[in-house]
Design a protein around this nucleic acid. Structure first.
Lengths: 232, 232
DNA sequence: TCGTGACCAGATCTGTATTATGGTCACCAG
DNA sequence: CTGGTGACCATAATACAGATCTGGTCACGA
């Protein structure tokens, strides 16, 4: 084979991740065999290990790619409309994006149940830390531009938004359509953590670049985990 | 033995529940043996079955008694000060009461992990339904007295408060003292679900009797499960 | 140079022997 | 006669050995 291009590697990584995701949804997390993933992607088993160091990383990569796509959607929305970086808009979109990504649910569910090992994995915890750091940066950026409720301690905002978002996410779509719950979540977040007379759009425009920077970096980190050696 | 009094039965039930709770905290849920519980309470094994029909009910009873105590504390607080029935005050206290009741945590944790059977148990689901119904009644009572934010759909209030409370509960005390998180929870609830100029105290006084009725009934139901045949 | 699949060690599964425990009830103390 | 008990039994949990499967490696070939 001629000198392999980076694009080829990325394409093959995608094929493998597609295969893994399909199997993930069809069978449980547990039942996925590396050999099947490789076969479904039309390559040999050894090839999988050219991309990711082991099975857990592959599974993590499936989730990471999905998460990156989700973050990408959020980022794009902010680029298109800076007011989208307000917590209530951001979390609303985040919620909706998460809801119709069944693969994500599976991977995260699996973490607790099947793969205690994965939870402890360095790559996994690193990612979690990055996500936390990004959240903090995001809130700092907002605070710097007066986009958080006056008198609200930033670490309280962080904890509170985390807890609220988690609660809505865990409660899940229950009878009512997801959009409705997303709106409810947005309402709670706006009332609890944002300034009462909504800030002028200009302030969101000012804050957007830094926010975009934060999310772009985070997205890149997820992509790095997702595509493994294909991005080295 | 002379004709057994109801108070004696209740005392013995308490002794057994104490023993079970102690073992629950010492060992896991799994390791609890009926025989040990009986021995620790100084009675024979068969006696346990005079109180509860089986092992799962006994474990459920441990949690139910704790929950009843927690609800009792909440109820007492409302009796002492009717404004305590405002959602943010109620949930704040509920949160604090729940936090320093390690037994409750254990029992509820165990439900998912160890005892799938228990989750399906009739007594268990019945209790869950009662709790839900009580929540609904509680919110209805508040709505009837204009103690919910105008324009807020009651079922949205229910879902939202549930999600928010769950989020804070699941997030758990993290570094900061529990009281601080409880205050944060209260703040979120108040801003999201209650009228903006706080209603006059008189309205809480009006609503309190019905609220107390709801919680008292629920407490009784928990007690019935907790003490089993001792209350027949 | 890159990809492969036969190969191996260790994880996982299966079937079985053994032990432990929930739940019952004949019996007994008061 | 009533209420409590603990020996007893069926069945569930556990332990273990052997068989099977699968993650991960690497010598080899395209």
């Amino acid at each position: 084979m001629a000198r392999t291009q980076r694009a080829d590697l990325a394409r093959r990584a995608d094929a493998l991740l597609d295969a893994a995701a399909a199997l993930l949804l069809a069978e449980g997390t547990r039942r996925i065999r590396i050999e099947d993933v490789a076969a479904r992607a039309g390559v040999g088993k050894g090839t999988v290990y050219l991309h990711w160091p082991n099975r857990d990383h592959l599974l993590l990569a499936v989730g990471a790619r999905e998460a990156a796509a989700m973050l990408g959607a959020v980022t794009a929305a902010i680029e298109a409309d800076p007011t989208e970086c307000a917590p209530h808009r951001y979390l609303r979109r985040h919620f909706l994006e998460a809801v119709d990504r069944p693969v994500l649910r599976r991977v995260f569910d699996a973490e607790g149940a099947d793969l205690d090992a994965l939870a402890a994995e360095r790559a996994r915890t690193g990612l979690a830390e990055s996500r936390l750091a990004a959240d903090r940066d995001y809130l700092d950026a907002l605070a710097a531009h007066g986009l958080l409720r006056a008198g609200l301690d930033p670490s309280d905002a962080e904890y509170g938004m985390q807890a609220v978002a988690y609660g809505f996410f865990a409660a899940g779509p229950f009878q009512a359509p997801a959009r409705h719950h997303a709106d409810l979540l947005a309402d709670v977040v706006r009332r609890s953590f944002e300034p009462d007379p909504a800030p002028p759009a200009a302030r969101y425009r000012d804050a957007a670049p830094r926010v975009l920077d934060v999310f772009t970096r985070l997205t890149d980190e997820f992509k790095r985990i997702a595509y493994g050696r294909a991005l080295d």
